[in-house]
């Protein structure tokens, strides 16, 4: 790697020093010992809070475990029960619904905002204002909208009434509950996503647009033929972030609807939480967590494969 540079320097600039020995020799024999010291704390974190828990989580999913006593090995019993559990299928369904609304809304709005910023306002102030919601905790975003969307005295319903439309029970209506949760998340994340796309837009060389203009390409053609294809790696990343993040929705649901009304917002992570902590069924909760893990893996692999997010057309 940098060894040639180092060898060149030690030979040329420091005539008083012997060529071999010292740092140069340490390079060839490797820095394993000192490297271990450098990575030791991080390694402790990795092993005890990521690797061991991953194995333990998989193990627990094959057991019956209520915190008290020892886990009992039950084989695939939990998975068989999950397959027949209507609450699980409901959780999976409402989570997917939430994810889809988020992908469509968030990506579309963010792409629009990024293009607007790119063409009419590149100032840091604009970007800062759009980023503000993202800096807030999910809990804060949830409570803020819980108040603004209140059926009785929330400002949004007030505005809806002024427009001559009937009030909406955003959190209380089974049909609205998941879209409302997704809207809160979209509100919080759209600025951040827009900034990611904006950064991608700025990386596209200006001379490409110049060339397209000279060739008589209109704005829509330019967008479809140049902007969108060159944004692909960024869009792939945005999609992976949106999907993996949305699949793990918990905070906003936990502080607003608590899974309700009925089961309308009992999303996967909330269901896992309830099974593990309210019903002390750690084996069952772990098994659903394994399934969620697998879903996310498959989604990430598919997205990277189809969008080829790790390659850029710019090279």
């Amino acid at each position: 790697m940098a060894t040639p540079v180092l060898a060149g320097r030690s030979a040329g600039t420091r005539p008083g020093r012997p060529r071999r020995g010292g740092p140069a020799r340490r390079r060839t024999s490797g820095d394993l010992k000192i490297a271990l010291v450098f990575i030791l704390p991080a390694l402790i974190g990795l092993v005890f809070f990521y690797l061991v828990p991953t194995i333990r989580g998989i193990y627990l999913s094959f057991t019956d475990y209520s915190i008290l006593g020892d886990p009992d090995w039950v084989g695939v019993k939990n998975y068989q029960a999950i397959a027949k559990d209507p609450l699980f299928w409901n959780a999976l369904w409402v989570t997917v619904e939430y994810v889809v609304i988020n992908i469509v809304l968030q990506t579309a709005i963010a792409l629009g905002l990024a293009l607007l910023m790119h063409h009419v306002a590149r100032s840091t102030w604009v970007r800062g204002a759009l980023l503000m919601p993202y800096l807030m905790a999910n809990v804060i975003a949830a409570l803020l909208w819980f108040w603004m969307l209140d059926y009785q005295i929330g400002i949004v319903n007030q505005i809806i009434e002024w427009l001559g439309l009937p009030r909406v029970a955003f959190f209380g209506d089974e049909g609205w509950a998941i879209p409302t949760q997704a809207l809160i998340n979209t509100w919080r994340n759209m600025g951040y996503t827009a900034l990611l796309i904006f950064a991608g837009l700025q990386a596209i060389p200006g001379n490409l647009y110049e060339a397209a203009r000279l060739d008589g390409s209109g704005p829509f053609q330019t967008f479809g033929r140049i902007t969108l294809p060159l944004l692909r790696p960024v869009l792939a990343l945005v999609l992976v972030l949106t999907v993996t993040g949305s699949f793990q929705v918990f905070d906003t649901v936990a502080v607003t609807t608590g899974g309700g009304p009925v089961n309308a917002t009992r999303v996967l992570q909330y269901y896992i939480f309830q099974r593990a902590f309210n019903e002390q069924d750690f084996g069952y909760g772990s098994a659903i967590a394994v399934i969620l893990f697998l879903i996310l893996m498959v989604v990430a692999i598919l997205q990277m494969k189809f969008l080829r997010g790790n390659e850029s057309d710019l090279d």
Binding site: F49, Y50, V52, P53, T54, R56, G57, L60, T244, F247, Q248, F250, Q269, I272, F273, A276, F282, G285, S286, A289, V290, L292, F293, L296
Partner: peptide
């Protein structure tokens, strides 16, 4: 996912 390691 965070939930997966959170339980153990």
């Amino acid at each position: 996912p965070g939930i997966f390691t959170a339980l153990p």
